[in-house]
Write a protein that binds this DNA or RNA. Structure first.
Length: 214
DNA sequence: ATCCCGAGGG
DNA sequence: CCCTCTGGAT
């Protein structure tokens, strides 16, 4: 089967089955989305959503968060992973938005990546979700799903997967494709005990074939 | 024990 | 490339 045909089957199945999404990161604006994505590293969205309402009530924007102490932020996010790193990143990120970008979240991926705590993946999430840009943010889920389905043969790093998917998925469906790959990884193609029995992509899945239905 | 929408530093 | 950070859920 050619890779192009495989994509059509994959995206078609997602279109029909991934319509109802649950447990999305909650936020009110681009700044809060950056905060939520930074907090989500090695942490479930559910837990992030438990924390952000309090955090955003106290520090709703870059200006207020830049004025917070690292200890104040730490106290509000400590139930997430890496609270020390994240508190430092959040404060530094907010400070740079204020001092360098005039209080406005920058509008290019290059500038976003200059913010402390914002790497390629986080910048891609902002671009995809906020700007609806045709980029694929490759997180642990997208990385796993793409490799299991055999969508990116030979790709060894998240960047490999991103470049490969970007090259092969048509631009107009890329934002949706990113979303579907993410949800599929979270709810069906899970890292442990993937739910292959309810997965409509079995016949297209290289991993399923090599694991003999288990 | 293993994994969750990673980034920074060595 | 590797390592560290580091809490909660399964």
């Amino acid at each position: 089967m050619k890779i192009g045909e495989r994509y059509r089957g994959v995206l078609g199945w997602f279109e029909e089955n991934m319509a109802l999404a649950e447990t999305e990161l909650s936020y009110n604006d681009p700044f809060q989305l950056i905060v939520a994505v930074i907090l989500s590293a090695q942490c479930t969205d559910k837990r992030v959503n438990l924390i952000t309402p309090v955090l955003f009530e106290r520090f709703p924007d870059a200006g207020s968060m830049a004025g917070a102490t690292q200890e104040e932020i730490f106290g509000l996010i400590k139930s997430c992973s890496y609270p020390n790193n994240k508190a430092k990143h959040l404060k530094g990120m907010a400070e740079m938005i204020v001092t360098r970008f005039n209080g406005i979240v920058p509008s290019t991926r290059e500038e976003l990546t200059e913010l402390p705590g914002v790497g390629r993946k986080t910048a891609n999430v902002i671009a995809s979700v906020v700007w609806n840009s045709p980029v694929i943010a490759v997180d642990t889920h997208v990385f796993r799903v793409a490799r299991r389905l055999g969508l990116t043969p030979g790709a060894k790093t998240p960047l490999d997967v991103e470049l490969r998917l970007t090259r092969e998925i048509p631009e107009d469906v890329r934002p949706r494709a990113h979303h579907w790959l993410l949800l599929h990884g979270r709810y069906i193609c899970t890292a442990r005990n993937p739910k292959c029995n309810t997965c409509g992509l079995k016949q297209l899945c290289a991993w399923y074939a090599s694991h003999d239905g288990k």
